[in-house]
Design a binder for these strands. Structure first.
Lengths: 249, 249
DNA sequence: GATCAACATTGATCCAGGTCAATAAAGTGT
DNA sequence: ACACTTTATTGACCTGGATCAATGTTGATC
C-alpha cells in the first residue's frame, strides 16, 4: 500500500520545515501561502520576531479548546488539524480541517475566547501569532492588516459554502464537494490534486458533512463502482474530475 | 392583530433614523451597536465623511449579488436583510439574516467579489462603507481596525453555530436555537426579547435551517401546543424561556 | 371591498439517509 | 507473529422530516 506519492518541489521543502523549527518566514516553504506574503523585507523581519514556532503536536493532541485563554492565532506549519464546536449536551460538529499555511482560531477574536476545540489529526506543528502584537504591527503595516482581514474573509467564505452543503446538498454532493475542496487545497500546496491521502477518519468526514459514517463508507464504494474515483484506505485517487465536478451541485 | 409592541427608548430613536438619512454617526441611535463604538471624536468625524447613507431599499430589493462589483461593506441602518448563497443549479441556502447595526458583505473581502446575494426583507436602509477607504483609515485608527476584525470574527462565530445546528440538531432544536438567537439580537437592539415580529417568511426560516416549510409550520404549532411560545402570523411571544433554552441543544 | 397572488397550515404518504448488527481490515504494542 | 483495539465496510431495517395535496389566510392592487 506504499503507493508512490507525487513529489513536487514544494513537498520536499515542506518536509524540511519539520526539521527546522526556528526557520525564519523569509526562508519558509509556506511563504507564498502564509501571512507574510506581500510584506516588505524589514516588516517581515519584525513580524518574524513575534512569531513563536511551537514544538510538534501528536495525533489527537489538543491545540486549544474553549477553556484555553485566547492569546494567539495559529498557522499550520506541517500536518493537519480539525476544529469542532460542541452543543451543550456534548454533541460535536467538525467545523473545518486545516492544512499548512491555514489559520486556526480566528473565531476567537470576537469574545476573546476560543469558540471551538482544535485537535491535531496527525503529527503536526504550528506557528503562533500573538494576537495583540499582531494588532500593534498591523497599525504600521497596512499589508499585514489586509492579510488578516483577507484570511478572516476566506474562512467566512469556506463556512458559507459548507452551510450550502449541509443545508441543500444530497449526501453524494456533500462528499464530492468535500473531496474537490481537499483536492484544490492540496494542489495549492504543491501536492497532487488527483491523488492524495485523507488525514482524517471516516468519522470526521461524516461528522463534518452531517452524515453517518456508514453513509460515507457506502458513498466511497459507490463512487468507486462508478469509476469516478478510487479509494484504498486513506488514499483517494480522482479518476474522472469532470464527472465529479458535474455532480457536486 | 395590531398588538402593542414594547416600545423602548432605543426603539423610538430607531424610528427617527428612518427620517434623517444623513444623520451623522455621532448622533445615530445605532452608535453603541455599530462600527464607530470606541472611536475618538475626531476619528469619528473623519469616518463620518466616507460613509454614504443610502436611500431606502424596498422589500425583496437586491442590495448586492455575486455579479455586483465589490466596493463596499454595508451596515443595516433600519429594516432587515437576508443573504443567500447559490449552488450551480440554482438551489439557494439562506446563510444569515441581518438587523440594524450588523455588517453585510464581509465575505467579499477575500476574492474581492460578493459570494452571496443580499435582499431586503422589508423596507430598509443601509450605510455604505467603502472598503478601500476603510482600509486606509484603519492604518491610522487602530480601534477601527480592531472593530472590523471583531465584526468578521463575530460573523464567523455565528456561521459556526449555524453549522452545529445544521449538522447535529433536530428540527425542533434548530428552530428553537434560531428563535433564541433572534430574541437575543432584538434585545441588544432595545426591542423586547420576549415578543417580536419575524421579518422573514416561513420559507426563509425553513431554508435557513435546512428544513421544509411544512416542518417549520408544524413545529410552531407544536411549540404553541406545549405552551412554550405563542405564534400568530409573524408575531412570536416567548412564554417559557427556560424550557426553550433547555430544548435548544 | 373584490380579486388575485403569495404565504401558511394541516394531513397523508414516502424515502434518503440514519441506526443497529455483524464482519473485516488496519493499526499498535509486546 | 500474536493479541487487541480502533476504524471501516456491508447488509437489514427503521424513522425524521421531506414531498405531495388540499385548504385556509393574509395582504397587495385597483
Amino acid at each position: 500500500m506504499t503507493q508512490a506519492r507525487v513529489i513536487t518541489p514544494l513537498f520536499e521543502d515542506l518536509a524540511k520545515v519539520e526539521h527546522h523549527h526556528q526557520l525564519a518566514c523569509q526562508s519558509c516553504a509556506l511563504y507564498r501561502l502564509c501571512l507574510p506574503l506581500g510584506l516588505h523585507r524589514d516588516d517581515l523581519t519584525k513580524l518574524d520576531q513575534i512569531i513563536k514556532r511551537s514544538a510538534g503536536y501528536k495525533r489527537h493532541q489538543i491545540l486549544f479548546e474553549p477553556s484555553s485563554t485566547f492569546k494567539t492565532i495559529f498557522v499550520v506549519r506541517s500536518g493537519s488539524f480539525k476544529t469542532t464546536i460542541s452543543a451543550t449536551d456534548g454533541r460535536e460538529q467538525v467545523t473545518n480541517f486545516y492544512f499548512p499555511g491555514e489559520f486556526i482560531g480566528m473565531d476567537a477574536i470576537y469574545q476573546q475566547r476560543y469558540l471551538s476545540t482544535a485537535r491535531a489529526l496527525e503529527a503536526s506543528s504550528v506557528c503562533e501569532l500573538p494576537y495583540e502584537r499582531l494588532q500593534e504591527f498591523s497599525a504600521t503595516i497596512p499589508e499585514l492588516q489586509n492579510q488578516l482581514m483577507t484570511r478572516l474573509s476566506k474562512e467566512l467564505s469556506s463556512d458559507k459554502n459548507l452551510l450550502l452543503s449541509l443545508g441543500k446538498k444530497t449526501a453524494q454532493e456533500k462528499l464530492i464537494s468535500f473531496l474537490l475542496s481537499l483536492s484544490q487545497r492540496f494542489s495549492e500546496r504543491g501536492y497532487s490534486s488527483m491523488s492524495f491521502q485523507l488525514t482524517m477518519s471516516r468519522g470526521d468526514i461524516a461528522n463534518h458533512l452531517g452524515l453517518a459514517i456508514e453513509t460515507v463508507s457506502r458513498l466511497f464504494t459507490q463512487l468507486q463502482d462508478q469509476q469516478l474515483l478510487s479509494i484504498q484506505g486513506k488514499e483517494v485517487t480522482i479518476l474522472d474530475l469532470p464527472a465529479l465536478k458535474q455532480r457536486c451541485g
